[in-house]
């Protein structure tokens, strides 16, 4: 870019700021409508993000437990062979052997003070097992199911468990949430884009004379358009900031009220607000929307002589 163009760019930016100052009401109007839309979108993203967190955590704890047949003698050589075989399966990250004795110890620890009920046992009733941890990419319900089936094929294995009902149920919810999110997101984007296009057009009408005169004294397309692009982008950025501020306020205010319910739904961890990545994403969406709206409403500007 040569220096003349850069200067023209700079003066177009100045002109955009002047334009916003000339029609502050239109600017405020479009910012607030966009902020409302982005707030809806942000709320939705926040819910999805927290639900995702639960699924992530659940997935992390997800493991396949394969119980050995009582008839299998726990000799180190054959156990090692089994472990190597399981480790070689796709999607397995770690395999740990839990002996009958260890299983009983674990149960005793879990029972804590109630452990005395185990005192009367003559013989350890618990089977030995392999605990198979999954690589993160295999933590989908389908992959876990397939893996469990492969493991169950081994003749030394009696039974395989992996909490199948829970996995399938939660996966269904997640899928529904994601689809709903995509639909709602697309709808909101369309709505917001239309709002921005409308308000940019309002600003355009408010400055028709100015644009006409600029053209007559030799302003090129960019000189005329750039102020509006800038205005759209700025609208989007300000709207995103407003939406984030309001969302954060609501989050802080509403947390004590719905906290218990959320804690129940989300498990042990408290709901979290957006991280830097999501905040940046919302800003990018705002700016993109603002720009897109400006581009849309300026499409027809070119023809006028």
């Amino acid at each position: 870019m040569d220096r003349h163009r850069l200067r023209r760019l700079m003066s177009a930016l100045r002109s955009g700021i002047r334009g916003i100052r000339a029609t502050p009401l239109i600017f405020a109007l479009s910012v607030s409508s966009m902020a409302a839309g982005l707030l809806l979108l942000g709320t939705y993203l926040l819910v999805v993000q927290n639900m995702r967190a639960v699924i992530e955590r659940f997935g992390h704890e997800l493991r396949v437990v394969a119980f050995l047949k009582p008839s299998v003698r726990p000799e180190p050589a054959s156990l090692d062979a089994l472990r190597v075989r399981f480790e070689a399966l796709d999607g397995v990250s770690r395999v740990r052997f839990v002996s009958k004795g260890q299983a009983l110890e674990n149960l005793r620890a879990d029972l804590g003070r109630e452990a005395s009920i185990l005192e009367g046992l003559e013989r350890n009733p618990l089977p030995a097992s392999f605990e198979i941890e999954l690589a993160s990419e295999s933590r989908s319900p389908g992959a876990v199911g397939a893996l469990a089936a492969r493991i169950a094929e081994s003749e030394e294995i009696d039974e395989v468990r992996y909490g199948e009902d829970w996995v399938q149920g939660y996966a269904r919810i997640l899928r529904a949430v994601v689809w709903l999110g995509a639909g709602l997101g697309a709808f909101l984007m369309l709505l917001l884009g239309t709002i921005v296009a409308g308000t940019v057009r309002l600003a355009l009408y408010a400055r028709t004379d100015e644009i006409q005169i600029q053209r007559l004294v030799g302003a090129g397309g960019l000189f005329v358009r750039l102020p509006f692009y800038l205005e759209g982008a700025l609208q989007g950025a300000v709207a995103a900031a407003v939406a984030l501020a309001v969302l954060y306020g609501l989050f802080q205010l509403g947390l004590p009220i719905v906290g218990d319910l959320l804690a129940f739904m989300l498990g042990r961890s408290a709901p979290a607000f957006f991280g830097a990545g999501e905040i940046a994403l919302l800003f990018v969406m705002g700016v993109g929307l603002g720009l897109g709206g400006a581009v849309l409403s300026l499409l027809r500007l070119e023809e006028a002589p």
Binding site: R3, H4, R7, Q214, V217, G218, G220
Partner: peptide, 11 residues
């Protein structure tokens, strides 16, 4: 000044 602004003259 707009004439010169459009021409891209230094400020």
């Amino acid at each position: 000044g707009i004439t010169l602004e459009i021409a891209g003259l230094p400020r």
